[in-house]
Amino acid sequence: MLNQKKLELAYRRYSKNFEGIKFEDVEKGYLDNQNEITSIVDLNSVEKDHILLIDLDSIESYYLSKWKNDVLINREDNIEDFKKIMIVVFYQCMGQDLYKIRYPKMMLEYSFRDVIASLIHFTMFGWEKEEKILFDFIVKHFGGRLLDTNDWNKHTWFLLELYLQYRNKTIAGANQNLHITVREQFNKSNLEYDLIPKDLDIYSEVLENWATPQLDEIKTLIEKMSMFHSNLASELGESIEFGDYRYGFYPYEILFLIHVRKKIGLPVPDHFDDLLMNTPEAKMTIGDPEPYPEWDPLLRLIDNFYRKNYPDYIPNKHGELFQ
C-alpha cells in the first residue's frame, strides 16, 4: 500500500536537493576541468589522456545540474541538457574501450544502469545510428570488464529485455527471461551474478503482456508499475532501486513502454492521475525524432583528440555522430 504523504515528502526532498546544490559550484568544477582538458589537448599529451576520460564525469555532472535546475526548479519543459547527459555516457563507453589494455583495471565512470538508460533514450529520441553503436558495445562487453552486468536494478533488466523484444534482438541468445538466462550462463562461466535479480516483480507481468491490444489491460499494468516505482521512490536515500536523487522520480521505464507501444500502433493511456507520472521530468516533451543538441565544447575537444590519436577509437569507424 502506497503511503501518499510519505511519497510527497520524498518528492519535496528530491526537488529541494537541487535547490541546495549551488549550480555555481558545479559550474566551477566544469570550468576547472576545462583548463585541464584544454592543456592535454593542446600539448597532445597522449601519456596523460586517460584524464580526459575521467573528466567526462564533470561534464555529465554539469548537465545533470543544468537539467534539474531547468526542469525541477524552474519548471521548464527543457530536454536539451538531459540529452547531453545521455551523450556523455556514450562517450564514456567509447573512451573506456581505448584503455582496456593499457589500463585494464581502470575504474569505470558509468554503470550498467547508465548504459541501458542511454540506449533506451537513444531509441526514444530516434537516434538510430548511435543506438546501434551503443548496442554493439553492450553486446561485445556484456558481463565483461567494461560492462559489469552484475546489477540488482530490476527496471534495468526490464528495459533491456523490452528493448530486445521491440528491436527483435538477443543477448546471450535470449530476449525473454534474460535475467534468468544470464544468471545461469554466468554461473557456469564462473562470472559474478549474485546481484542479478532472481525475479523482476511487476516487470515480469508487463513483459508477458506489454504488446496487448487492450487499452484497459496496459493501463492496469502501468498503474502497477507506477505503484512499484512510487513505493521505492518514497524510500528516498534508502531504497536501492529508485531511491536516488538522480532519477528517483523520473519514470523512464514507463515512458519507454509507452514509446514502444506507440511506435507499433498500440493504444496507450492519454493521461495519468498519480504523482509519479505528473512530475516535470515525466512530462518532458520528447520529439519523434528528437533533434540532436548542440555539442558541448569540451566533449568536442575530447572526441577530436581521440579521433586524431587512436585509429581504433570506435567513432572513427562511423563518421560524424550526433549531428
Rank of each mutant, 00 (worst) to 15 (best):
M94T: 03
F158P: 02
D97R: 04
N69M: 11
I258D: 01
Y63E: 09
L53R: 02
N175Q: 08
Q214I: 13
Y166R: 05
N3K: 11
L160A: 05
K283W: 08
W295V: 14
S230M: 06
Y63H: 13
Y310L: 05
N153W: 14
S189P: 08
L257I: 04
N278L: 07
V46L: 10
Y313I: 07
S118D: 00
I85Q: 11
L160Y: 02
I196D: 03
E128Y: 10
G144P: 03
L298N: 12
W210I: 04
Y99K: 02
L178N: 01
R167A: 10
Y99T: 01
R167F: 08
Y306E: 03
I87K: 02
R145V: 13
Q323R: 15
D201T: 14
L162R: 02
L207W: 00
E131R: 10
R102F: 11
T181A: 12
V260Y: 00
M284P: 07
E238M: 12
Y62M: 14
N304S: 13
D201W: 15
Y306I: 06
K263M: 11
P289Y: 06
K262R: 13
P269W: 09
K308V: 09
K224V: 07
V268F: 04
L98E: 00
A211C: 12
G237H: 07
E19P: 02
Y99V: 01
R113H: 12
S204A: 13
T170Y: 00
Y91I: 04
L221V: 05
L134I: 03
M1G: 13
G29W: 01
V71T: 12
N177L: 10
E109M: 12
T170A: 00
M227P: 03
N231C: 14
E294S: 14
K6D: 09
K224L: 08
A117F: 09
N44E: 14
A282D: 03
I37F: 11
N231M: 15
L195I: 07
N209M: 03
L207Q: 00
N3I: 08
I85R: 11
N69L: 11
A10T: 04
I54P: 00
P104T: 08
Y62C: 10
Y103H: 13
K198G: 15
E8H: 09
K100G: 02
G144F: 06
Q176V: 12
M94G: 01
F122I: 06
P289Q: 08
P289S: 04
V260C: 01
L200D: 06
Y91L: 03
Q214D: 15
K105C: 08
Y306M: 05
Y247F: 14
Q96K: 07
Q185Y: 08
K68Y: 05
N316H: 08
N168K: 15
F122P: 03
I85V: 14
L255I: 10
K68W: 04
G95Q: 01
R13H: 12
F228E: 01
Y91F: 15
D201I: 10
K224E: 09
F305G: 02
G144K: 11
N175Y: 07
E290V: 10
I180K: 14
Y193N: 12
F90T: 02
E36V: 15
N74Y: 09
